[in-house]
Nucleic acid binder design. Sequence first.
DNA 1: CGCTATTTTAAACGCATGTTTAAAATAGTC
DNA 2: GACTATTTTAAACATGCGTTTAAAATAGCG
Lengths: 209, 209
Amino acid sequence: MSTKNKILDAADVLFANKGFNGTSLREITSQANVNLAAVNYHFGSKKELIKAVMSRYMDELSPRLESALSLICQSELKPTLHEVFSAFIGPLLYLNEFKENGTSTFLQLLGRGYTDSQGFLRWFLTTQYPDVFTNFTKAVNIAYPELSAEEIFWRLHFTMGTIVFTMSSSEALIDIAQNDFNNKLDIAGVIERVIPYVAAGVAAPIIHN
Amino acid sequence: MSTKNKILDAADVLFANKGFNGTSLREITSQANVNLAAVNYHFGSKKELIKAVMSRYMDELSPRLESALSLICQSELKPTLHEVFSAFIGPLLYLNEFKENGTSTFLQLLGRGYTDSQGFLRWFLTTQYPDVFTNFTKAVNIAYPELSAEEIFWRLHFTMGTIVFTMSSSEALIDIAQNDFNNKLDIAGVIERVIPYVAAGVAAPIIHN
DNA sequence: CGCTATTTTAAACGCATGTTTAAAATAGTC
DNA sequence: GACTATTTTAAACATGCGTTTAAAATAGCG
């Protein structure tokens, strides 16, 4: 395996578990059995490495997500919100084929990126992959047209928060749940549980003041 | 104002904006116009300072939250989930009386604590303030008794995620919303919008496989 | 005032970080 | 096989961190 890929593989596990700020280049390179200077040689800087780690996932996810959502938008019959959110399941779980524990690792990274490093990753995602957001908004608008643009905005961000935050601490939560409830669970099980939650949240009736 | 309070005031703003790992003692002490060594003299270590910052809020919030929730639990008629979640509004907004921008700062800190520093803050909160969690679970159980303990567990953590994550980026979101929708909004407005969302999420029908 | 206890201060310590350097090793090509 | 380009390596660099030290300043009190 190439040095570049060894670095990427070591980096995304460590970034997911300990955050971007919380992971040093020395940890990454020693985990990858690679010289410290290799990161700066191959990627230029730590910041560029972070972008590369995220791009590897986004480049797999983004086209699959877009086609799943546009399929829903072009459908004859009006989709339910539950169907809109379920459109995420396939593309997200595909990341597990692409890389071991790819789904949970990616979602953890997403959670890290929103809080770590002053939101520079949010800027990166919204500027590099804007279609994901607009397609998503469009699909929700078809499923629930009574919702104003502003209300969609807020509820989509609530949803992002739920997903991203849950996944960024999913390992700890799965551990607790297995201890307390004797119930085997994996990341797909968590996704199955969170979808009804966010679908109901977005579908909540509008309160007028 | 005492040196100790100057440090606490500077620390919680900086911690909220840049995270615990992302804020150095030198930033805090220079913002507070205080000598660098004062942190270690008055608090012992950076970790103890973090605990002190959180305790200042939790000691105000926790008793108010407990009494609001136990009031709901002891009521004659069965509360709705919306009422359960609304019980948080008063105690949370009270933090604004206690300290300028107290509500959003505290919620941002909460969000930081869940992702920063390997979850030591979650340990701190659950061990130091366990009643908040058990009272909350009890209230939800009364409002929606069909929900199993495990499902309550998951949905409460989804809710925590929604709230905490939204608030940790609330300032950026409020800015965007005001630009895009010409709608004046503050932290109370965000809370008003998120309550129906999480209430509907927790109230979602149970899917049986 | 004079003494003690508390607080503040400037400086340094040891350590970890991201990055750069320049030499060594390897791969690729004619 | 010799020459070049690429990659790897060990070492050092500059910087920032949390913490500690010991002296100076201040406050409290009989």
